[in-house]
């Protein structure tokens, strides 16, 4: 599966560092970055600017995964949440380092750098963001 690496590599700026972008026309911020603003469309073309997001936000909704995909089997039960980032965009991510009972809508979280998946024992290891409770 070594050939799949390019697809991940391309997204390293997002997965490691929350690199999003902003519409130069309406100022809306997007993560992951978009080619054009879906609200301004042609007015935004050529005006999309890179912005680095903080990776901080709060839980909009969540679930506890009890039956996980193969790569995540060892981690069940694990929480997955939709996080609304401070800058506006919403993203999906795992919440770690806290008791399942602590997770609730509105929980403030920040990002932490973790291993997300690996292609078996011989393939590439993919890193990226997960979230933990804000101190």
């Amino acid at each position: 599966m070594g050939e799949a690496v390019a697809r991940f590599w391309r997204e390293i700026p997002q997965r490691y560092n929350f690199m999003g972008n902003k519409c130069g026309s309406c100022e809306r911020i997007f993560f992951p970055p978009r080619e054009a603003c879906p609200f301004c469309r042609r007015k935004s073309m050529g005006k999309m600017q890179e912005v680095q997001l903080t990776g901080k936000g709060e839980v909009v909704t969540y679930t506890i995964i009890h039956v996980g995909p193969e790569e995540f089997e060892e981690q069940v039960p694990y929480p997955i949440a939709i996080i609304k980032l401070e800058e506006g965009p919403q993203i999906t991510g795992q919440i770690v380092d806290c008791s399942i009972d602590d997770i609730h809508i509105g929980l403030k979280v920040e990002s932490t750098f973790r291993r997300i998946q690996a292609e078996g024992y011989t393939g590439a290891i993919y890193y990226g963001y997960k979230f933990k409770k804000c101190e």
Binding site: E74, Q75, V96, F113, R114, R115, I116, Y127
Partner: peptide
């Protein structure tokens, strides 16, 4: 380490 932690993640968190 949990399954999602290794020398790379520990190093990144320490550097950050």
């Amino acid at each position: 380490p949990s399954v999602d932690q290794d020398t790379a993640t520990i190093s990144v968190e320490a550097a950050r």
